[in-house]
Amino acid sequence: MGNPESQEGLKPDVHYIKFGVSSKTLEKLNDNVGAVWLYKSADDLKVNLYSDLDWGGTKQEVTSSCTSLPSKNYSSIELAWQNPGVYLCKDSEGKECSVYTSSQTKLADGFNDNVRSIRFKNSPATQYGAVLHEDQNYEGICWAVDQFTNISPVTMTGGVSSITVFLRPEASQGKGVTLYDDIEYQGESVGPYPSDQPALGDFNDKARSIKIDGNYMALLFRDDNYGNECEVLKNSDPNLLIGNTVVCKGLFCIGSGVNSVMVIPVKK
């Protein structure tokens, strides 16, 4: 058959489809699969073909590129990536997934507002966590998660459209997060906080700058108990009035400000 990627040795009349994620259907190749070419080793990618649509019927494991199969009658394919990362899936079973190892302002094609579960594949040296955002460009409601979770409209009412990926450290270091009621770290302050704060009490809506000491990431929320819009900050910010939609939204800074804070240890 040859290599479809390079077209070397590929017959002119051969039809092929390249899959990067699992698919409930093989489209024009349904019941007409002649061969499979793997672009990754079996250590990185596990591939299963199914005789029926929607991963039903008989399963055929594919462990290497092959020029022949026991049958041509396959109608769906499962790609189970093995490399470490954050896996956003369209289903709760984890079959239709896209893997992320870095933050993305928008999700892969077909995944925007269609994520139903999140999974993590870690190694001893690499432990992933993620912040899921309702809107693209890390905007809107957000949700921090570091373990397998099913996602429903209750937890993310507008769906998931972008993702912040972070690495968890072996231990936290530094004092944490301090909020100031004036820019340039001036005025009254609260903190430092080395852990989450579900409410800021008398300091609600007052934060105008933030100092992060140590290997922490701060999630600033507009409402108490980590509700409403949020902003992710990995570094200190001397002026939250600029470019921060939680503190200042729109031309006239319409917004209620910071009312709760998540403090997450991250590897920097």
Rank of each mutant, 00 (worst) to 15 (best):
G34F: 02
E229T: 11
V99L: 13
V21P: 02
F120H: 03
D202E: 15
S172R: 08
L219R: 02
K46N: 11
G34V: 00
N204D: 14
V14S: 12
N204G: 03
N122V: 14
K72C: 13
S256K: 14
P12F: 11
V115T: 07
L132V: 03
D196A: 12
P192N: 10
G257K: 03
V165A: 07
H133N: 14
I242H: 10
N3Y: 03
F111G: 06
V115E: 03
P194R: 05
D205N: 15
A130T: 11
D91A: 06
G20V: 10
V165N: 03
Y180N: 03
L26K: 06
F252E: 12
C230N: 01
E78W: 05
L220K: 02
R222K: 15
I118D: 05
S162D: 06
D54P: 01
K249A: 14
Q7W: 09
N225Y: 08
V177R: 03
Y226V: 00
Y100S: 04
S117N: 09
D146Q: 10
N259E: 14
G20A: 11
K121F: 05
G158E: 09
S51T: 07
A218C: 07
P153Q: 10
D224M: 11
M156K: 04
S68D: 15
T126E: 10
L10G: 07
N239H: 04
Y226M: 06
N3L: 05
D31G: 10
L29R: 12
D31S: 12
N215Q: 05
T157W: 13
D182M: 06
G214C: 06
A125F: 11
K175G: 09
E231T: 14
Q136A: 10
Y185K: 09
G85Q: 01
I151W: 03
D52W: 00
I141R: 14
D146R: 08
S102P: 01
G129R: 05
D52K: 12
A35K: 00
E8A: 10
Q82M: 10
V14D: 13
L251M: 15
D113E: 08
I254C: 09
T149K: 13
F252I: 12
S98N: 12
G227V: 06
S260E: 06
E78G: 10
L107S: 01
K72D: 08
D13A: 15
T157M: 09
S64P: 03
I212Q: 01
R208K: 13
N114S: 14
K268P: 05
T25A: 04
G57F: 00
S161C: 07
V246H: 05
L49N: 08
F252T: 13
A108V: 08
E93S: 13
T178Y: 04
V99Y: 02
S75P: 02
D109F: 15
T126V: 15
N228L: 09
D213L: 06
S41R: 08
K59N: 13
K28Y: 07
S195H: 12
F221K: 00
G34L: 10
L200C: 13
D43Y: 04
Y128E: 06
S161E: 11
P169E: 06
D182K: 09
I163Q: 01
L219I: 11
Y226C: 12
L45Y: 02
S161R: 04
